[in-house]
């Protein structure tokens, strides 16, 4: 879901750097043979290989297998599963729908997230902690519960429609539930915290004196924001967008509950193929199409920024 952060061991090195730096091993660090380490790693490595890597490779293999309809005994390697996907307009439109809804989700999340991230960056560590607690806690409550909350709010006679109607803004209830809008609301609500935390982290890394320097040079706060803060927070924006996009692309529960049959996103289609139609080889192919589409979009998006106008920020 998120790149693993590596915490470099912090060395205390107060010695003047005279003489050749022969002693490559810092004194505070352990240098041992790694035999015993391998022993500690063995259980988890076997587990991850046996119950993650192998299954993932197995369905990749299956996606290239075509079984005959009756017994499935004669297996042949082919691209038929993929060909079927890319020639059927139903699947293609589902893929497009998935990308489209994920993009909407990213945009909505970004707009909603930035002010919170900025507020966190400008607050004391204590307040930051409280905000982080408020926004991250919902991530630890089951998604079905959060979806149920939205269901109560979005029903045709639910809270939002009733409020709008009693205020006279609308005459008839809006179709919020079982619509694309409902899915975008559900998804952005679920993944907003990741966007906020990603942007906030990059904002923390901006040297506060830069804004002062910009002000001394005569820039208004708004100008400082657009020419200093915003560009420097791009790495956070990019990683937040990547995260929210990837999560939205493969979300199953929210599209199923908030969109239902009206919004057949890829995960819903894949689930149907596997669990209801038992078409495992085709379902495997759909899984990898989904993975590949997400990966390619993410790479193109990231590259564009890393090589764009602000490429220096990503160094």
């Amino acid at each position: 879901m998120e790149p693993v952060r590596h915490y470099a061991d912090q060395e205390i090195n107060q010695e003047p750097n005279t003489g050749a730096n022969l002693q490559k091993t810092p004194k505070n660090k352990k240098r041992r043979s790694w035999g015993p380490g391998l022993l500690l790693l063995l259980p988890i490595l076997l587990f991850i290989f046996g119950f993650f890597i192998v299954p993932m490779l197995y369905i990749l293999y299956l996606s290239f297998i075509t079984t005959d309809e009756i017994g499935g005994t004669t297996a042949a390697y082919s691209l038929k599963n993929y060909a079927q996907f890319f020639t059927d307009s139903y699947y293609l439109s589902s893929l497009w729908l998935t990308v489209k809804i994920s993009l909407y989700t990213v945009i909505l999340s970004l707009l909603l997230a930035y002010p919170v991230a900025l507020t966190m960056a400008k607050s004391s560590p204590r307040v930051r902690g409280y905000i982080a607690l408020l926004i991250a806690s919902p991530l630890l409550v089951s998604i079905v519960v959060r979806n149920f909350g939205w269901y109560l709010l979005l029903l045709p006679n639910g809270t939002i429609n009733q409020t709008l109607m009693s205020l006279g803004i609308i005459n008839a209830p809006l179709k919020l539930l079982f619509s694309e809008l409902g899915v975008v609301i559900g998804l952005s609500n679920a993944y907003l915290p990741f966007m906020i935390l990603a942007i906030a982290t990059s904002l923390y890394n901006i040297d506060p004196s830069l804004e002062k320097a910009s002000a001394i040079l005569g820039a208004s706060p708004l100008r400082s924001f657009f020419s200093i803060t915003l560009p420097l927070s791009l790495p956070g924006i990019v990683s937040g967008c990547v995260l929210v996009f990837s999560l939205s692309m493969s979300a199953y529960v929210t599209p199923a509950l908030m969109g239902g049959a009206n919004v057949p996103m890829m995960p819903v289609v894949a689930y149907d193929q596997i669990n209801n139609l038992l078409r495992w080889t085709f379902g495997s192919a759909i899984s990898y199409v989904l993975l590949a589409t997400t990966l390619i979009t993410v790479i193109v998006f990231t590259r564009t920024f890393e090589r764009g106008k602000f490429k220096e920020v990503f160094r």
Partner: peptide
């Protein structure tokens, strides 16, 4: 979702 599919099939 993909993990679930993979493990079910496996």
């Amino acid at each position: 979702l993909v993990l679930g599919i993979a493990l079910l099939i496996y």
